[in-house]
Amino acid sequence: MPSISRRTFLQTAAASAAILPFARSANADPLGLPIGCQTWPVRQLIAKDFPGTLKQLSAAGFKSIELCSPVGYATMGFGGLQKYSGADLRKVINDAGLTTVSSHFSLDELRKDQPARIAWAKEVGLTQMLVASLGGPKNPTADDVKRAADEYNKIGERAHAAGITQGLHNEDFECSTVDGKRVYDMLFELLDPSYVKFQFQVSNIQYGFDAADYFTRYPGRFISMHAQGWSATQKKIVPIGQDSLDWKRIFTAAKTAGIQNYFVEMDLPLMQASVPYLKQLQV
């Protein structure tokens, strides 16, 4: 299976793109969870005007955001957020009518100074710290996977001791195989469920990773998901609700998985177009 990255297929809109507001709906959101979005697709806007971007996201109907670390993602549009203290950053987010409990961090920054990153996370009010990938070799061996899992178990144990849930996304390394077995599946066996949870990339259905199947097979192992619509006929990412996926099935299985939050993650027009469907979806 070829290695992939959400960075590869998530096309960002031009920095000048405007987010059109949607009217608030009285209907409950899926599972009663707030509609969230990952901030990676709006990184160019964040680099120019963080408070303004947050207000636009709130006006579009999002209620929560997932951050990317100003340290680990400094060269990718988030470095300017280092000017805020953790408490000030939380205030800017809350002032825009949003909440945040989750952020992505680079594995490298956790290796270098995890205590400092945990301290920052707690100041912001985060309860979840994620990494996109364990970053192993392109063609790993079983020993490579075990070494990566052993290291991440230690990272997860330290986070757990600090009251933080450590999570793992599924990107390049996790989507590779060893002797025909997915590394992702191997990690469910190697990572300690007491210390490490998982975050699922729904659009990986294009590579055979079915969200509802994983949620059902590994109950209690997930904390969140990145949500994208996927058209099986067009073979591309499309707005949620205008796609081929059975979202009622996905969210129903998410109850078993232990999903605590979800974040829409697509380019801006697609994120906007997904909000009305999510507002009316009853699960």
Results as ranks from 00 to 15, higher is better:
residue 6 R to L: 15
residue 7 R to S: 13
residue 8 T to Y: 13
residue 10 L to R: 03
residue 16 S to R: 12
residue 17 A to I: 08
residue 17 A to G: 05
residue 26 A to T: 11
residue 29 D to T: 15
residue 31 L to Q: 10
residue 35 I to C: 04
residue 35 I to V: 12
residue 45 L to K: 15
residue 46 I to V: 15
residue 52 G to W: 15
residue 53 T to A: 09
residue 55 K to A: 11
residue 56 Q to L: 10
residue 57 L to G: 02
residue 57 L to R: 12
residue 68 C to Q: 13
residue 69 S to P: 07
residue 72 G to W: 00
residue 73 Y to E: 03
residue 75 T to L: 10
residue 76 M to W: 03
residue 82 Q to C: 12
residue 92 V to I: 10
residue 102 S to Y: 03
residue 105 F to D: 10
residue 107 L to E: 06
residue 109 E to H: 14
residue 111 R to Q: 15
residue 112 K to M: 12
residue 120 W to N: 07
residue 123 E to S: 05
residue 133 S to R: 02
residue 135 G to Q: 06
residue 136 G to T: 05
residue 138 K to H: 14
residue 139 N to S: 13
residue 140 P to N: 04
residue 146 K to R: 14
residue 150 D to R: 14
residue 150 D to H: 13
residue 157 E to H: 12
residue 158 R to V: 11
residue 166 Q to P: 13
residue 166 Q to V: 11
residue 173 F to V: 07
residue 176 S to F: 05
residue 180 G to V: 11
residue 184 Y to I: 05
residue 186 M to R: 01
residue 187 L to V: 06
residue 189 E to Q: 08
residue 190 L to P: 06
residue 196 V to F: 07
residue 200 F to D: 04
residue 203 S to E: 13
residue 206 Q to F: 10
residue 206 Q to W: 04
residue 208 G to T: 01
residue 211 A to S: 12
residue 214 Y to L: 09
residue 214 Y to A: 06
residue 215 F to A: 11
residue 215 F to E: 06
residue 220 G to K: 13
residue 222 F to Q: 08
residue 224 S to H: 06
residue 225 M to W: 00
residue 236 K to C: 05
residue 237 I to Y: 01
residue 239 P to H: 07
residue 239 P to W: 05
residue 244 S to L: 11
residue 245 L to H: 07
residue 249 R to I: 00
residue 249 R to S: 15
residue 254 A to R: 05
residue 255 K to N: 15
residue 258 G to S: 02
residue 259 I to L: 12
residue 264 V to Q: 05
residue 265 E to I: 00
residue 265 E to T: 03
residue 268 L to H: 04
residue 270 L to T: 08
residue 274 S to E: 03
residue 274 S to I: 09
residue 274 S to H: 09
residue 281 L to C: 10
